[in-house]
Design a protein around this nucleic acid. Structure first.
Lengths: 336, 336
DNA sequence: CTGTTAGCGCCTTCAA
DNA sequence: TTGAAGGCGCTAACAG
């Protein structure tokens, strides 16, 4: 522990105190350059005695960097929503880990995409050395434009050949197909899709799901639009069942959606999985705690987060990068 | 939109271009100081034409601030855990909102408290203008010591007269009592507490719960230690039931814990609420989607988050602040 | 091995 | 109303 009130506020205070120049102090504390071992030890001793640490902000300014990476969540109109979504917040946790390991701070920024230049504004403010976008929402135009002149950016989300930026994401189409095949294999005939298609990820899940269905079953497949919030999607599901619809298999666009279906089904006296098989997407932590435990298509967001950070740092170092897609994995529990 | 590649990298480029001095540009762009309206407009026009924005880092260095607030999560050994905990991540979302509204960036930092000076290290690195600690874990000594010489810090967590720092938290003791009275009122006789007491918040919930129980019931009340992770607490609950224990009322330290109990009970054929009443704490979003929907003690974390930010900014402005406790609220659904 | 010097990009007194 | 100059705290040549 240093003294309670650090009287040593800058490197030059310390230099005066040690009777050396500021650059010597800098060398001693950063470990860069060459320096007499004794001088170094002596300066470090004085520093820790006074509880002195280099000012990171000044250091970064001098080095032309900020030391932090911006993690941006483009929100439609859902305010705090995205951040309380179990999937996004788990991802955030893994990103925080990966960035910390690489020596970067995580600057969290919720952005309300309005107009065309919210992203340019953020970039030019120079607050971070790079950007990880979580989700592209409906902003791929903005992202493409930014990508043309701003390199240090990677995006979590669906791959598309039209994107001029690097994405990391799951193969949502394949994931949807996985869900479809599993339901078919269980003998389901009357299927329903719960979700929305405003984000490309969800659209791909839906498309993959439908593509793997035989024509007759696909024709009968109900497409049920749902809200993103748990309350909303729960209400949507409830209304669907209340209207007398009785599918024997449901694929929800996300685990939160699937949990809503479970809740609504329970309220309507529909038994899962006997009357209705339910399958979700994501494999959030709570998916194993639902009743019955949720069968779902798993995204490995820990690996994905590390990959995002890795690609970003490579781009920051000047390398070219390619988008990657992770193969999702079916996790069979009891709901389907 | 500005040009794709901003050739104007600093205020002095712009000054040269406009044929004025750097200070004039500074005045024009910040809006501070006095300046001829025409000059100002002209400079701003050139700036936006070239997509120039002031470098926030340099600006902050000069102003002796960083423009960001550190949100710190002290983790025991749970790695990514805290951030995927639904409660913490919801809080983070609300903090992000509140800070954004006040013009601050949110710097997220997971810290692994080892030794005594993890907090001092962070403080002295000067990366943020203030600190919001989410949870005190078992680190109140460290916090007290830091609080003695570092003012811009507030803490989410249990109030204690021993704390020399400002806390915002729920009255956990009262919340525990609320839960107890509700279970008693339902006629429960054989109670159990699921949780752990390593964090003062949880200890207070437990104490409040027990305090509101009549002697005979309290004596029979089982104290079941659980892990923090969903998997862990689920296993703890399962083991408890498997050993033949059949309480008729359970109070879990958190909603995640309660959901684990729901899952374990279901697996053991125990019906909720007929055989067993279950009550949680927090009221996370998913609490309304469990089956049956979870009765719980609600913490208003949106208000709490705004309060945290408010108090922090007041402290940064030099004011004294007092700790506050929010009264928790019983939300009766179907599980109890 | 160490000190001197010149900035990183910006703001702000002090003069003009 | 504007410009010149100094400095926020630090690093990195370049000398010595």
């Amino acid at each position: 522990m240093g003294s309670a009130v650090p009287s040593v506020r800058s490197i030059s205070d310390l230099a005066r105190m040690a009777g050396v120049s500021v650059s010597t102090v800098s060398r001693a504390l950063t470990g860069k350059g060459t320096l007499n071992q004794l001088t170094r030890d002596r300066i470090r001793a004085i520093a820790s005695e006074h509880g002195f640490r280099l000012n990171v902000a000044a250091q970064n300014l001098r080095l032309g960097r900020t030391g932090s990476i911006g993690v941006l969540l483009p929100l439609g109109h859902e305010k705090a929503q995205a951040l309380s979504d179990p999937f996004f917040s788990a991802m955030l946790g893994h990103l925080a880990n990966a960035l910390t390991d690489r020596g970067y701070d995580l600057l969290l920024s919720r952005v309300l995409p309005h107009g065309d230049d919210w992203l340019d504004d953020f970039v030019r403010s120079g607050r971070t050395d790079g950007i990880i976008m979580i989700g592209q929402s409906d902003q791929s135009d903005v992202l493409n434009r930014a990508a043309d002149h701003y390199r240090p950016m990677v995006v979590w989300g669906a791959y598309s050949p039209d994107n001029r930026y690097t994405t990391v994401g799951s193969d949502n189409f394949a994931g949807g197909a996985l869900a479809a095949r599993h339901l078919l294999q269980r003998g389901c005939q009357r299927l329903a899709w719960f979700g929305h298609a405003r984000a490309p990820e969800f659209a791909a899940r839906q498309a993959g799901f439908l593509s793997a269905l035989p024509d007759d079953i696909r024709k009968g497949c109900a497409i049920v639009p749902t809200h993103i919030t748990p309350e909303g999607s729960r209400a949507n599901a409830q209304a669907f069942f209340a209207a007398g619809n009785r599918p024997d298999g449901v694929f929800a666009a996300s685990d939160v959606g699937a949990i809503s279906v479970l809740a609504a089904a329970g309220a309507c006296g529909i038994r899962v999985p006997q009357d209705l098989a339910v399958i979700g997407f994501d494999d959030i932590v709570l998916a194993q705690l639902t009743r019955p435990p949720l069968t779902t298509v798993r995204q490995d967001i820990e690996s994905a987060s590390r990959m995002l950070v890795d690609l970003l740092l490579r781009r920051m170092a000047g390398a070219e990068t390619q988008s990657v897609q992770f193969a999702p994995q079916l996790v069979v529990r009891e709901s389907a």
